[in-house]
Design a protein around this nucleic acid. Sequence first.
DNA 1: CGTTTTTATGCAAGCGTGTGCAACAAACGT
DNA 2: ACGTTTGTTGCACACGCTTGCATAAAAACG
Lengths: 333, 333
Amino acid sequence: MSRKVFVSAKDVAERAGVSRSAVSRTFTPGASVADETRKRVVEAAEALGYHVNHLARGLMRNESGLVCLIVSEIDTPYRANLIRELSRQLQNVSKIAMLINTDRADKNVDDALRLAISYRADASIVLSGMPDKSITDLCVKSGQRLVLINRDEQREGALMINLNDRDAARRAFIAFLRAGCRSMAFANSDAGTPSLVAREQGFCEAAREHGVEVVIERFGPTRYQSGVTLAQRLLTREKRPDAIFCANDLLACGVMDTARHQFKLSVPDDLCVLGFDDIEQSSWSSYHLTTFAQPVEKIAQKAVSWLAQPSLTDDHSCKLTAELIWRGSVRGG
Amino acid sequence: MSRKVFVSAKDVAERAGVSRSAVSRTFTPGASVADETRKRVVEAAEALGYHVNHLARGLMRNESGLVCLIVSEIDTPYRANLIRELSRQLQNVSKIAMLINTDRADKNVDDALRLAISYRADASIVLSGMPDKSITDLCVKSGQRLVLINRDEQREGALMINLNDRDAARRAFIAFLRAGCRSMAFANSDAGTPSLVAREQGFCEAAREHGVEVVIERFGPTRYQSGVTLAQRLLTREKRPDAIFCANDLLACGVMDTARHQFKLSVPDDLCVLGFDDIEQSSWSSYHLTTFAQPVEKIAQKAVSWLAQPSLTDDHSCKLTAELIWRGSVRGG
DNA sequence: CGTTTTTATGCAAGCGTGTGCAACAAACGT
DNA sequence: ACGTTTGTTGCACACGCTTGCATAAAAACG
């Protein structure tokens, strides 16, 4: 038996006894078509199960309706949340998200963007990694919109959405200071992601200005398990820190858990902990983590609305601020 | 200034001084083209930044390379994990995942499948909700493959991947019994998802066979916060349960947290807790939740391999078993 | 009723590909 | 030398759709 095939506009045209353009117009908002004709077309389409072929339509209109999300480690709570919000808002403007997973090293961001071009995606949104300039140039030259989220670097013609990480980190330091902490540490992964680096730098910068020394520890991927290791390293130092700013809530959860369970410390009495992202787990009563919330909804909104209406300015940069959510892992507040 | 446009095969043909079909053949594996010609084409393509238009190719080949993932609440750990695995494995067979978010009520599963048809997706994988029979029939009639994961219901021509929830739930009961628990409860959301229902039924069934009564409590969406409420309801009963089987790890986390922090109970000494899914958080040292692991990798593999090679049997059903991961939330083990 | 305006519809071209077919050249065998 | 095989290439059509253009029908107007 031969491969089944989708029903085309020709089929429904024949059945409705009209021309092929009539059915095309029926499914094109704003096109001129008589009520009677439309009715017959719709009827025939329904009976046959006809659906406009978006591939072919995209070919004609030069607009596929696809938007590429380029991301690694999708199962990370913050990323998953952002993807959810993006896909939802994209659907609101009748676009649809293509997911490209860049977990594997051989499938890096450049390749992902090439794929996006191959599929004639209307836009690409990069959440992980940093594409080469040559390839981003090709994107904008081809008329593909490009959004970089928390990528920090400049790219001509792209929309860059960044958090004010450095500033938030400074506020973190102040919070620790007010809580009476004197021996501070920064726990980071060794991923070297721009936003993580910025948080580290902002924190250290503020500390230096106040003449406070801060010990930095870096280890592994940006995950819970790394937080465990980081805590073990930090809490066995001869001078045990009484405050740890973690680059990430996941790290912070790992840090808190080992501080409590392995080192029998009380948070926040013996140790203050601050995180970043405000993932769902931070609000769970085992953590009550004080942390900075990323304005996920606003990020997605900025990105999507920029895609929807081509802004006139050629390149755009947008700085959002992270809000400090006070819970119970830092004294005072 | 006019809208920029992607470079087409005609452009690179002109530049390379060959016919358009030559460049098409160059990018078609196995096509007959002279080394010299191929070289010139590749050179020209590189210089111009040419990428084969997958939309047009899909139109010709009647195979878009797109696979639709239909899912709600993507940011749930288990779902996020599954999506990650699916997208990764799809990429391995040169397919690409389209994400359709069915969070919003007005954008339900049927609409999602219609959208998948519009984009001529090679396949759709349904992780949430249950599509109407009429629409799934249209899918298979149109030659679109269909995979239902944990949907439980039968659909002609589709691949149905299901966990042996009922059986796992029976094992859960036995585990509680061995731990010496006599007063058992089942904590469920009121989502009514087939797998959640099956777990509840399996558990109650086993209890009935052993002459043990179990109290069932249902509340809210399948999330942490519902677990909190469920625990509050269950633990304030005149006869407090000494074992709670939760339909889900998220619920279990909520249950454990409130049992410990609000009711000052010790897990597993005062209360045994079992979960389902083995999300990452279950392994965190605040929980050490004993739970059933979904074979996420295997699920994705089954789905993807079925898409890759059309199995001869017309419809296929596949039952996988959940493995019990012993940690510290149940006595014994 | 004749003329102008409006509206609806079909025709055909075009979007960027893949591919069967024929043509052609080169290589090979005898 | 000639027939045969092998390999390469261009032409032209098909895929399913949109849309400008011309035309026909209907409506409006004097």
